[in-house]
């Protein structure tokens, strides 16, 4: 019984929080490149391109995750794990929304 170590918990935590974690990394990246990019000598067009690339990558990752969560929810036995996948799915969906409205900001506001 003692064998249930923290490894399982970390996996659990990561599978639950993957969506928001992707959002947070994405947010740090776009804020970082817009805030600090100039100081590193990046041209505004390069910064924009980078930010869009990050947006697409984050969006794609979240959609993939969403699909994965859906599939696992359908296939995995009821009870415990189902809850994780459901919570993870919702969190991913919310994170996707958050990424999309960041994209809105990127679309509308010039650098």
């Amino acid at each position: 019984m003692i064998g249930v170590g923290p490894g399982g918990f970390v996996r659990y935590l990561l599978s639950m929080l993957a969506g928001p974690l992707i959002w947070f990394i994405y947010f740090s990246v776009i804020y970082g490149v817009v805030g600090f990019g100039g100081a590193f000598g990046f041209a505004p067009s390069g910064i924009r391109l980078f930010a869009w690339a990050a947006t697409l990558a984050a969006g794609a990752a979240l959609i993939l995750l969403l699909w994965y969560a859906r599939r696992s929810r359908a296939s995995i036995e009821p009870k415990g794990p189902r809850a994780v996948h459901e919570v993870a799915g919702f969190l991913t969906a919310l994170s996707l929304f958050a990424v999309l409205i960041e994209a809105l900001a990127l679309l509308i506001v010039p650098l």
Binding site: F27, G35, A98, A105
Partner: peptide
């Protein structure tokens, strides 16, 4: 006086947090 695009990111995130 932070650049507008940075402000826009934070404005968008501030909107996102209203959903939960």
């Amino acid at each position: 006086g932070i650049p507008e695009l940075s402000l826009a990111f934070f404005s968008a995130a501030s909107v996102a947090v209203a959903v939960p």
